[in-house]
């Protein structure tokens, strides 16, 4: 993995990776071994922000920690599998996928399928079949950007964003899927909705989907364990 460490003030380093997959791997490695004095670890599409309290964790020490994580991958605990960047023990990535029930009745479903030159049924089937991962959270509290190697489609955002998108709306933009945790404006293409509570200020963590987590969608109404 080749990364660049970019300056971001006296209390942070912005680590730039070559791809989203590298971001996921680096974030996982860093999150599995957080040093004292680390304040924020924020993955995004091509970067991970490492913010520190420099009185506890000097920036140079944080930079060494990042370089070490790049070389060795996720920290290993208790003799877990070695070598695979995506299978560290104890992290959210190795936990079973979060399953979200979804109804595929979004306003933009047909238009979006047409844009991609496929049928709506195929779009839904691919969305259900894919195993997704939370690449990062952005735009709003708990709004997870999900990516999948099984998802070949990229769609542009709407030309004119909606002023009001209901909570639970399941949507597509670029190569991502995501669900609106709360009602908000938004420019993603709505393909369905989920009843799952994605944001709860009283819960720990407040976000149902956290960076690195695996996610699957299941058609609402199909019973658990009964297949699709």
């Amino acid at each position: 993995m080749s990364v660049r460490l970019l300056p971001s003030g006296p209390d942070a380093i912005l680590v730039e990776c070559g791809s989203q997959a590298e971001v996921l791997a680096l974030h996982e490695a860093l999150a599995s071994d957080p040093p004292e004095g680390l304040v924020e670890l924020v993955p995004a599409a091509r970067t991970v922000l490492v913010a520190v309290d420099h009185r506890v964790l000097p920036l140079e020490t944080a930079a060494s920690w990042v370089r070490r994580a790049m070389q060795h991958g996720p920290a290993q605990h208790g003799g877990a599998d070695v070598g695979s960047g995506s299978a560290s023990s104890g992290g959210v990535a190795s936990a079973p996928p979060v399953v979200l029930d979804a109804s595929y009745d979004g306003e933009d479903l047909d238009d979006t399928a047409r844009l991609l030159g496929i049928g709506a049924a195929e779009l839904v089937a691919r969305h259900l079949a894919a195993e997704w991962r939370v690449a990062f959270i952005g735009f709003a509290p708990g709004f997870a950007y999900l990516v999948s190697d099984d998802w070949p489609y990229r769609v542009p955002r709407l030309d004119a964003p909606r002023t009001r998108v209901p909570a639970g709306s399941l949507a597509l933009a670029d190569g991502y899927t995501g669900a609106y945790p709360r009602e908000s404006p938004g420019g993603w293409r709505l393909i369905g909705r989920t009843e799952a509570v994605l944001w709860d200020e009283g819960a720990d963590p407040p976000a149902r989907l956290v960076p690195g987590a695996r996610v699957r969608f299941r058609e609402a109404g199909s019973s658990p364990g009964a297949g699709s």
Partner: peptide
């Protein structure tokens, strides 16, 4: 502080 990873 510390919740930016969750979008806060």
């Amino acid at each position: 502080p510390g919740l930016a990873r969750l979008g806060v």
